[in-house]
Simulated scan of single mutants.
Amino acid sequence: MAKENITIKDIAARAGVSTGTVDRVLHNRPNVSKAALEKVNKALEEMDYRPNMYASALAYNKEYTFYCVLPKHEQEAYWDEIEEGAMACTEFRRDFGSKLKFIYYERFNPPAFTKMVRELFTAKIDGVIIVPATLEQTARFTEKLIERNIPYVLLDSYMPDLKPLSFFGQDSFASGYFAAKMLMLIANKEKEIALMKQTRDGIVGSKQQANRETGFRHYMVDHFPKIKITEVDLPLDEDHKDYDGILEKFFSTHPHVHHCITFNSKAHIVGEFLQKSNRRNVQIMGYDMVAKNEECVRKGSISFLIAQHAYQQGYASVDALFNAIVMKRAVNPVNYMPIEILTKENVDFYRRTAI
Rank of each mutant, 00 (worst) to 15 (best):
N346H: 10
R140Q: 09
T138G: 07
R217K: 14
S33D: 10
V347Y: 04
P255S: 03
E84F: 15
L135S: 12
D48G: 07
F304N: 02
Q198I: 05
A77F: 13
T142L: 12
L185S: 12
P51I: 03
L183F: 07
P151N: 09
P225Q: 02
L135I: 11
D23K: 10
A330R: 15
K3C: 04
F263A: 03
T343H: 03
A43Q: 04
N332W: 00
T343Q: 08
F113V: 01
I284T: 05
K124I: 02
A2D: 14
E76M: 14
N264I: 07
F167G: 07
A330S: 05
I227M: 11
G215Q: 07
G202D: 07
N109W: 10
C296G: 02
F108Q: 09
E143Q: 12
E272L: 10
L274N: 14
I227N: 09
A13H: 08
K42T: 14
P151E: 03
T134Y: 08
N281K: 00
A330C: 00
L305R: 13
A139M: 13
H27Y: 08
R50W: 07
S56V: 12
K299S: 13
A194H: 07
R329T: 09
H240L: 13
L247T: 03
L37N: 06
Q208D: 01
A180C: 11
M184K: 11
P71M: 00
L44E: 08
M196C: 09
E340D: 15
E119S: 00
E63Q: 00
P151D: 05
L234V: 08
G286I: 13
P160Q: 01
F349H: 12
I129M: 01
R14V: 03
A180M: 06
N188Q: 14
T21F: 09
K124D: 14
A112V: 01
I341N: 15
K72N: 09
R329W: 12
E192T: 05
H73A: 11
D222P: 11
Q312W: 00
E45D: 11
H256I: 00
Y311D: 04
T353S: 14
Y78H: 04
V347T: 05
F216I: 10
P235Y: 02
I306T: 12
H218P: 07
Y287A: 08
D201V: 01
D80C: 06
S301R: 13
K144G: 01
E248C: 01
N109C: 09
N346A: 03
P225A: 02
F96G: 05
V131F: 08
G169Q: 06
G85H: 06
A139C: 12
R200Q: 03
K241F: 05
E76P: 06
Y287M: 06
A36E: 11
I146Y: 11
K42D: 15
I229M: 05
D80V: 01
P111L: 07
E143V: 06
R352W: 07
F167A: 03
C89T: 07
L305F: 12
I269V: 09
